[in-house]
Design a protein around this nucleic acid. Structure first.
Length: 212
DNA sequence: CACGCGATTGCCT
DNA sequence: GGCAATCGCGTGC
């Protein structure tokens, strides 16, 4: 994925990240495991904008914990919440404080490792939500600040063609009324089983999963 | 240094 | 659909 893809406006990046391949080569898997990658297809995202976005962690400027949000596009911003973690990909020119939260992933690689880490066999319960994704991919604060464009252990690439699915935009999840809650900055693939939230939210029509 | 809360999840009714 | 668990971080005393 070219640098300029992530340097664009965050809402546009969040939308066009849908259907893309996102995976990580973790070296903590068993040695005899042929497939050392974990990851899959991005099916749900949220945009956190550089300015005038009260919901964004960057809204009140850089601090020790959110500083990677102000780094170059392609940097990972991983933060802890409710004893779990959420992973973001930084967007826009460096210094602005914008990122895309990855909320839903269709598992493709390292599924057995994801099952072990999640303590859960059911495919649908592996990466349906930002906290689950980090647990399944074993992402935590140690990954905060790493640059996925620079590291050979990360891959972000074109996956499913955008013509093959419909994108729905909604309000972001878990944002209080006083914090720009009404803006349509959550994007997901219509009907995909790995979109988080309550049923009916992600299932406007009962479509099949992505191919390829 | 104490306290309160959150871009969540999972269990319960 | 409601609510408790859980813990790192920001805020304020």
């Amino acid at each position: 994925m070219p640098d300029r893809f992530l340097r664009r406006r965050t809402a546009e990046v969040a939308k066009t990240l849908l259907g893309c391949v996102w995976c990580y080569q973790d070296h903590r898997g068993a040695t005899n495991e042929p497939d050392r990658w974990v990851g899959g297809l991005i099916v749900e995202t949220e945009a956190y904008l550089p300015a005038d976005d009260l919901a964004s962690h960057s809204a009140r400027g850089p601090t020790r914990s959110n500083r990677s949000m102000f780094a170059a596009a392609g940097t990972l911003y991983v933060y802890p919440i409710h004893a779990k973690h959420c992973a973001n990909i930084v967007t826009e020119p460096a210094g602005l404080g914008a990122a895309v939260l990855v909320r839903g992933l269709q598992p493709v690689w390292g599924i057995e490792r994801m099952r072990r880490r999640r303590g859960q066999a059911e495919l649908r319960k592996l990466t349906r939500g930002p906290g689950m994704i980090c647990q399944a991919m074993a992402l935590d604060r140690r990954h905060d600040g790493s640059d996925i464009k620079q590291s050979p252990r990360w891959r972000l690439a074109r996956g499913v063609d955008a013509d093959d699915f419909r994108v729905i935009a909604t309000r972001r999840i878990g944002i209080g009324a006083e914090k720009d809650a009404d803006r349509l900055l959550r994007f997901f693939i219509d009907g995909n089983r790995f979109v988080s939230g309550k049923a009916g939210d992600h299932s406007r029509r009962p479509t099949e999963q992505l191919d390829g």
